[in-house]
């Protein structure tokens, strides 16, 4: 396993030494290849804290985190003795609103900033920049432009290209589509899905959008008040009990399916997981 959490808890030190428990006794492992995970949970449930443990920006206050053979514990001295920087190359973390981290004069310079920090030769970094700008759906002409004259969506893409150019094995994205219009969101989700499908990388997306969970994820993690309460396949998550207990929103596909079943007794043979599949399946039954 590339990432392994063993009984991990994390406590933020607050004002007047009153701590705030952000993660509570978390056990989980993530493979270096082939996973497509979504991480969900209400605001303040510890999602971002969990993600920051995965590339060693934070170390647990209890328990152990193993990331590609490096062990992190609450022992700060021991943690510091290990080289943590290489982990951050192997586990790429894209923060929420990544457009705010842009600072170079050109898009090209900004994309190669990460790779060069990790010692990638200049020529190769350039090659990667050319490749990644296309993967995120922009063309090479963007490379010479200033990142500050781009639209919000374009900035997001550029900053994601900057992380991709580090060639991480695992890619973690914190609410990558917030603020984008529907087509922009769909296009970007497609990019992440392609990275997973075509390059075989593990992708984890933190999101509030249950449609994303249902349509894309093979595995879903649910955090509630710092505890991992669900780790499994998306369809199992939306059982009536979980939806009620955890106050989950239903994905639109499921909501419609269930409403039609309740009202008209329409039952679909296989569970559709995309809009297209749902419309096709319903078309067959209703006509």
């Amino acid at each position: 396993m590339a990432i392994k959490f063993e009984r991990v808890s994390f406590q933020y030190r607050g004002v007047d030494d009153k701590g705030y428990l952000a993660l509570a006794d978390i056990n989980l492992s993530i493979a270096a290849q082939g996973e497509f995970i979504t991480l969900i949970g209400e605001t303040g449930s510890g999602k971002s804290t969990l993600a920051q443990h995965m590339n060693a920006l934070l170390a647990p206050t209890e328990g152990r985190v193993h990331i590609f053979g490096v062990k992190l514990t609450s022992d700060k001295k021991k943690n510091r003795k290990q080289r943590l920087n290489p982990i951050r190359q192997r586990v790429g973390l894209v923060f929420q609103f990544p457009e705010y981290q842009l600072f170079e004069e050109t898009v090209l310079k900004d994309i190669i900033f990460g790779p060069k920090n990790f010692g990638v030769p200049h020529e190769e970094a350039l090659e990667r920049a050319k490749k990644m700008i296309q993967i995120v759906g922009l063309d090479e002409s963007y490379l010479e432009r200033s990142p500050f004259n781009l639209s919000g969506g374009e900035k997001k893409r550029v900053s994601i290209a900057g992380i991709l150019a580090m060639e991480p094995e695992i890619l973690i994205l914190d609410e990558p589509t917030s603020g984008l219009d529907p087509m922009g969101r769909n296009a970007l989700l497609k990019v992440f899905y392609d990275i997973h499908e075509k390059l075989g990388k593990t992708v984890m997306i933190i999101t509030h959008d249950m449609d994303t969970v249902y349509e894309y994820a093979k595995r879903v993690l649910v955090l509630r008040e710092g505890a991992l309460v669900y780790d499994g396949e998306p369809p199992g998550l939306f059982s009536r009990k979980h939806v009620e207990d955890w106050n989950l929103e239903l994905p639109e596909i499921l909501r419609i399916q269930r409403a039609l079943e309740e009202r008209f007794g329409i039952r679909l043979e296989k569970n559709p997981t995309s809009r297209k599949e749902l419309i096709e399946a319903l078309g067959e039954v209703v006509m």
Partner: peptide
């Protein structure tokens, strides 16, 4: 905000 950006840049290999 400054803390967030530091973490974001640390994720891009800034030590």
């Amino acid at each position: 905000e400054a803390n967030k950006i530091m973490l974001a840049q640390a994720s891009r290999g800034v030590d």
